[in-house]
């Protein structure tokens, strides 16, 4: 990560500061820290961060290319509902791990199909990106649970199957790091891989250059002989695929589908948007922000287990409030200049 940028330094400082502050309060109050910050907590934090990070990286790519995909939440709902339905269709009452992998793969393929349509509406037909994105959310909130009702006769599924941890022999024995990284869900490792790959791709490959140019100065990219809309299609479709994968991962970790209320996705797509804004459009920054938010989420559970009560509703608002502050205080969070503007080549 490029640490020379002042905005990035401030963000890092703020994130580390938040963590230290929580720890300091915990110490000052004499809370049993050792019972709170356990290896299990770190492991659960990583798992909680995984879907947020994936959706965030997807959304970041779309926005970098100049298209605001605020439909992440909706695409996540579809990803989760489709994975659940598919694993039930393929594996019946007792699906296997293989069924789960296949279902996830098919669900991501379906997400790609949806986003192709979405991207056509946004790019070719110049849809209002905000309204279309909100519509995807509504459609997901409607059709996601509807799928569940069709499949299980209920908005919630019965217990299906959840992803088992993968243990790397030897490495898993390392204290702390071992169980956290080498005895955990393979999806956590996959996400780490995706985050690093997304960073390399964005900043070190020509396609990454094009992606940035498409969002900042599409005309410059066009005159460089690159088809701007093709770049944007790729980015939007990738964002849908990542959001679909995020939903699939959420289901694979939970082991069942929940379609009541805001569904099991429950705002994680929106937090994904927050995460990349917080991470200043840097894939690793977004993943780090996802980790922070996931950790915060899990921390409440830890507090509860040691008997400390918090108004969860309020603590859950932290990411939203934080991003408002970040946007206001550090205007270094520069959105891509051409964000939301359809591009028409002058050919």
């Amino acid at each position: 990560m490029d640490l020379s940028d002042r905005g990035t330094q401030l963000r890092l400082g703020a994130a580390v500061g938040t963590v230290l502050l929580v720890l300091a309060i915990a110490l000052a109050r004499g809370w049993p820290l050792a019972d709170i910050v356990t290896v299990g907590f770190v492991e659960r934090t990583l798992q909680a961060a995984t879907p947020i990070a994936l959706a965030s990286i997807g959304g970041l790519y779309a926005e970098k290319s100049g298209v605001f995909n605020i439909g992440l939440e909706g695409f996540m709902i579809f990803g989760a509902a489709n994975t659940g339905a598919l694993v039930w269709i393929i594996g019946g009452e007792s699906p296997t791990q293989a069924d789960l992998w296949v279902a996830m793969g098919l669900a991501v393929a379906l997400s790609i199909a949806y986003t192709v349509l979405f991207a056509v509406l946004l790019i070719r037909y110049k849809a209002n990106q905000i309204v279309a994105g909100l519509a995807v959310w509504f459609i997901g909130l409607g059709f996601g649970p509807f799928t569940a009702v069709l499949v299980w006769g209920n908005r919630n599924s019965p217990g299906l199957v959840s992803m088992t941890d993968v243990t790397v022999p030897g490495l898993a024995e390392i204290p702390v790091v071992g169980p956290v990284l080498f005895d955990t869900s393979p999806l956590v490792l996959l996400t780490i891989l995706v985050a690093v790959a997304a960073w390399v791709f964005l900043y070190r490959t020509r396609y990454g250059y094009w992606l940035q140019a498409a969002g900042e100065n599409p005309e410059a990219l066009d005159t460089a002989g690159v088809n701007v809309n093709r770049v944007r299609y790729a980015a939007v479709i990738f964002s849908g695929a990542m959001a679909g994968l995020a939903g699939a991962v959420l289901l694979a970790h939970a082991g069942s589908f929940t379609g009541t209320g805001q569904t099991m996705v429950n705002g994680r797509g929106w937090i994904g948007i927050v995460a990349y804004l917080f991470g200043n459009y840097n894939p690793l920054g977004a993943a780090a922000a996802a980790l922070l938010f996931g950790g915060l989420d899990m921390l409440q559970i830890q507090f509860q287990t040691v008997g400390i009560q918090f108004p969860n509703r309020l603590v859950n608002l932290f990411p939203y409030a934080a991003v408002v502050v970040v946007l206001t205080v550090w205007s270094s969070t520069r959105m891509p200049s051409a964000l939301g503007e359809p591009y028409e080549s002058e050919d």
Binding site: A127, A135, F138, G140, G142, F143, F146, V149, L150
Partner: peptide
């Protein structure tokens, strides 16, 4: 299922956007 009508309203919103 009533969720269907929510989905349809979502579709109306989507098409209004385009």
């Amino acid at each position: 299922p009533v969720q269907l009508i929510d989905g349809i309203i979502g579709l109306v919103v989507l098409f209004v956007a385009v």
